[in-house]
Design a protein around this nucleic acid. Structure first.
Lengths: 336, 336
DNA sequence: CTGAAAGCGCTAACAT
DNA sequence: ATGTTAGCGCTTTCAG
């Protein structure tokens, strides 16, 4: 087999196993010539370090776990890719799992992550309050950062987008295009993004004197968009959706109802999925800086890891980092 | 920390570490009373086995790697979820990576998987021929199964859908609805699914006396659907797309071109993504049995793992399993 | 049936 | 600068 061990390399290079280790990892004092020699031998033998052995000894697996509510959500899929990319460049790997919005399952997966000795966890909490206690307790025993949503105030480190700002861009843009009445379709109070986007929408529309004809809030998916339109009475100037999946659903339902977009009613989404550029008309949306979100999450996580274990240890209420990135509106056919 | 080790459990239970191990894993002869006692102590101490230690000793990590060309593809995302589910119920975890259709990257990820001592790998090969050699060689050193596509004939175990049958269902259905001319948009020769679906389409349309007005083949994504429609001259009775993403793109482009679906032209997809039920009209498509595919892939993989290491060892040309599941047509608005 | 002991592959003191 | 050695947490002979 290709199972050549460090021991083999050391023997072939005529040095001790300790020296071989140092030469390969570059962690101790070794003569330049020795390093070169060992490296060469290792390569010619096709030596690949056994990460398990390394992990056991170092107490670190170089693996991070990622837990999202729903793998099929294209927004999460996109962010997972970016995270994997970031990790890889640090020599780490990605373990994924989805919680399916099930707190029990969420806990289960955390437990497994823990047994695997992951370096840390990046989580998109399934629920706004129900996940809080769990996440708080996990944070105590391993490095953790929340991405996209948080489970409650001060629960743990968080990286996400400024939803208020994004929603503001949407409503002001629509207002600028003459919209004076709006209908809102969003996620419910069960996620922080759901709450933040809704609150921002309400605040800004009020400030601009926009008449809110109604709202429908359930989940971040197609069906919600469809139901939202079905439950919509009066036809507003614009239907503001809290994410792109909802907007997609709404678009289809409006079509079915014989309403033309944007002539009869404008539609907006949130997230900036590629999908929004495919349908006709293309959907105006707020683009999340996926790559920056991923980079930032990984940075914050490794900040904790390297800054030593659990940040909540003694201090009880250590300062949790909260990074808010700024999204950008992308105007398209659904609003003009 | 919660880092209670087997050693702690053994001491607390008043037995040796060996006995504790046997009691917990159930792998040796231990008195029933001892087992119960040890288990109880373990639970009360909150003992969780350190998977790294286990893996090092057993030489198996209980982790499988999954490599797909593109994480954001909803079809892959869906299948990844099902795989994760299957693995979890076997006590294993999922390491994911995407190759981004880059053979170098594909190789790189395999290497890492190997170092991690994964039990095996499930791969959706990036390319039909370019990936063949790599996969063949990986198969020699670790359990591997190809999913959805294969890299070449006889390269390694494979689990996928019967593309010929699916395409047959589509064309016959369209023919039954009066379509006599068709335009094909698909993936290129670079994937086995691209080839199979195209060939099946050609064979069946020929047999039914259908006039093929043209074809456009590039990649399995939205853009291809859009370009395909742009390059389409004469308007056929139906546009047959090799997957749902292409169909989505085609639908949008047809709309933009002022053609109504299904009145002016019918459209079909392949895969059965939820997305096809959201747009208006909903898209007729061939549904892949995602869950069965995942189950089957995991079964085949563990068959290899448990049947001992590398199947290609001596035999040189051992029989590769090839599982073909049957997909099912779902008719919808885009064809009536 | 249970205890003792030998490592899995690797790193990090500690010697030399 | 390099060799030696002691484990990381666990499973598994091998004795008893």
């Amino acid at each position: 087999m290709g199972d050549v061990t460090l021991h083999d390399v050391a023997r072939a290079a005529g040095v001790s196993i300790g020296t071989a280790s140092r030469a390969l990892t570059g962690r101790g004092r070794v003569a330049a010539a020795t390093v070169e020699n060992v490296r060469e031998v290792a390569k010619s033998l096709g030596y690949k370090p056994n990460l398990i052995g390394q992990a056991l000894r170092r107490g670190r697996a170089n693996v991070v776990g990622m837990l999202v509510p729903h793998l099929e959500n294209p927004f999460f899929a996109g962010i997972i890719h970016e995270i994997e990319e970031q990790l890889f460049s640090r020599g780490a790997q990605l373990l994924v799992a989805d919680s399916r919005w099930d707190p029990a399952r969420e806990e289960e997966r955390f437990r497994i992550f823990r047994s695997t000795q992951v370096d840390g966890v990046i989580v998109v909490p399934a629920w706004l309050d129900r996940s809080a206690e769990l996440i708080r307790s996990v944070r105590k025993i391993m490095p953790l950062v929340q991405l996209d949503r948080y489970a409650g105030p001060g629960v743990a480190e968080f990286v996400g987008v400024d939803n208020g700002d994004g929603m503001k861009q949407v409503v002001e843009y629509l207002h600028g295009r003459g919209a004076r009445s709006m209908y809102f379709i969003g996620g419910d109070r069960a996620t922080s993004t759901g709450v933040e986007r809704h609150e921002a929408f309400m605040a800004i529309s009020k400030r601009l004197g926009i008449r809110v004809t109604g709202e429908y809030r359930y989940q971040f998916n197609f069906e919600t968009g469809i139901s939202g339109v079905e439950k919509m009475g009066e036809v507003p100037d614009a239907v503001v959706c809290a994410d792109d999946l909802i907007a997609l659903g709404a678009l289809g339902a409006l079509n079915r109802r014989g309403l033309r977009v944007p002539e009869d009613v404008m539609v907006t989404g949130f997230d900036g999925l590629p999908l929004t550029r495919v349908v006709e008309p293309q959907i105006t949306t707020v683009c999340q800086p996926t790559q920056e979100l991923a980079r930032s999450a990984v940075n914050v996580l490794y900040g904790i890891i390297e800054g030593e274990g659990s940040p909540g240890d003694e201090s009880g209420n250590a300062d949790e980092t909260a990074v808010r990135l700024v999204p950008r509106l992308r105007a398209a056919g659904s609003t003009r």
